[in-house]
Design a protein around this nucleic acid. Sequence first.
DNA 1: CTGAAAGCGCTAACAA
DNA 2: TTGTTAGCGCTTTCAG
Lengths: 327, 327
Amino acid sequence: MKMTMKEIAKLANVSQPTVSRVINGNPNVDKALAKRVMKVIEESNYTVNRAAQTLKNSQSYLIGVSFSDLSNPYFIEVLNALEEATRKEGYNIIIHNSAFNPLQEWQNIQNFMSRQVDGILMIPTSDYNMDRFKDLNVPMVITTQIKDGFDSVSVDHDEGVRLIADHLISEGHRKIGYIGPPVDFKLDSLRAALYDNGIPLDESRIIPLTSNEQSTYAIHEDIKNFIKDKDSFDCSAVFCYNDVTALEFIRLQDELEVNPFAEDLAIVGFDDTMLSKIFQISSVHQPIQEMTEIAFKLLLSRIENPEKAKTKIELPPKLIVRKSSIK
Amino acid sequence: MKMTMKEIAKLANVSQPTVSRVINGNPNVDKALAKRVMKVIEESNYTVNRAAQTLKNSQSYLIGVSFSDLSNPYFIEVLNALEEATRKEGYNIIIHNSAFNPLQEWQNIQNFMSRQVDGILMIPTSDYNMDRFKDLNVPMVITTQIKDGFDSVSVDHDEGVRLIADHLISEGHRKIGYIGPPVDFKLDSLRAALYDNGIPLDESRIIPLTSNEQSTYAIHEDIKNFIKDKDSFDCSAVFCYNDVTALEFIRLQDELEVNPFAEDLAIVGFDDTMLSKIFQISSVHQPIQEMTEIAFKLLLSRIENPEKAKTKIELPPKLIVRKSSIK
DNA sequence: CTGAAAGCGCTAACAA
DNA sequence: TTGTTAGCGCTTTCAG
């Protein structure tokens, strides 16, 4: 049987608003009376009805979190950090996975709106919905990516890629390839970094991942398709745009009957997830906990002050060098 | 500016309850009028206020999901499947991580209650709160474990362990060890299975994980502590109670200066997560998607009919044999 | 077929 | 210090 303030009030012989005052720690309540009410509450397993509070206060203490993908272990670490950070501030998270589907993503946002969330933390699938996000009437912070015109928090991807380029070059590599989406910010960074070092990226060294559903299966297939009929691939090092890809690439090589890649191919990933730690893959570390907390705090400050100018925060990356890229 | 039915009503020149009827597809509304109202709604980015609905209907379409641990990739797969299953039925999930802390777990449950969740999906940290769970006034289904007196859905762990025992024995192993908590259902199963095969488990072959916080770091330390001063460990095969442990065990051996374990030690894990797939570790597969859907459906049926007798569902496990346990 | 009225559980302004 | 009253946005009788 679910208790309400009204029933507590009856049991304690006070009015219902008095119960409300006691629960909310209003100081203008007689001590003895407050104690009596508290006693009744404790004996009754009453919990406040947050739906009623939400309706009354137009504030839900609910944050909607939209993930682009819940199969990449990287996002799990984000979720883990987020659950803790929000809980400590009295917020709850309601989560959705868009699974790289922008239509799904938009529906999820609508759902968040109807749930009266106070704010949305967004890990976007793509730029597809960005315009719609602009005139949402609820605060939104984008994280793991930087987007113009939005509050956004991310590691500095460009700098991360430069760290990789510098590392590979200092290891003596000149023939550096890339595996990832053919249109991608990190690929642009790689191009720029290599160009700046006088060894422009050869477009033939790009192994494109074109499937939209970025399942590990799709990664496998995309790479296989690319190297089909090739019996050599002129690279001494490859940058994989994330750890999952790096790992799938390594696994694929074990399966290949004809392996067009160099025996001692250097491989670098991105995100420094448990995958790269376990597999000794060099990778760019992201300060996930810090990033998540900053994103959440930024969202809170935005909830308090919707008019503040948009903030972009880029955190410094760190390259963790492991066996996969040293001789 | 957040729209309400009242405002839609004014714009469409009807009463507010009529707007409600149109939105909820009540058939007793004049077609033309309904069309007019729909048009206004579409032009206005109105979304229904679920907090108000929850208050009015005493039903939130919210499911609380409590995880014992969000760092084990196994639970991520559960979460992924759950998000999809619940969304398709019009439910939202609000999640909490107990991080193996029963006190935190109980607080999380209280929080779920105040959020007016329709039901709770529970992955328990321990038996600590079970009594409290019994007289919760909201439906609860326990998953990934079977518990007496509760609706629960899980893979048949006992059968899974028997598959492992049979496999190892048929591979010729007689000296079989265990790594995991020293008080554990799977350990009991192993004892029974080996006993039934006439090769009782030697208690000296149990490497106990005793730290309560089951971080990978703790696993490392526990194993290290155990083998300290030992220069041999009389086992030809080891069953690790989950994949994370199996993997940590394998990694640890790489680090050891003195490795007391046999060169060709067979290793088997449990859960068949991405870790065992990637690392070619034999493991017991859990049909996570199926299990999750069944648990959720069971919860829904319990929400509809709270009086039904408790149901325990054990799904058949499947042993996936990989390189780690064959010669 | 449509509107008026009540009430879900809570908070806050006001009165006493 | 406490109680009375109103109202958040919605659904559901009940009249008309």
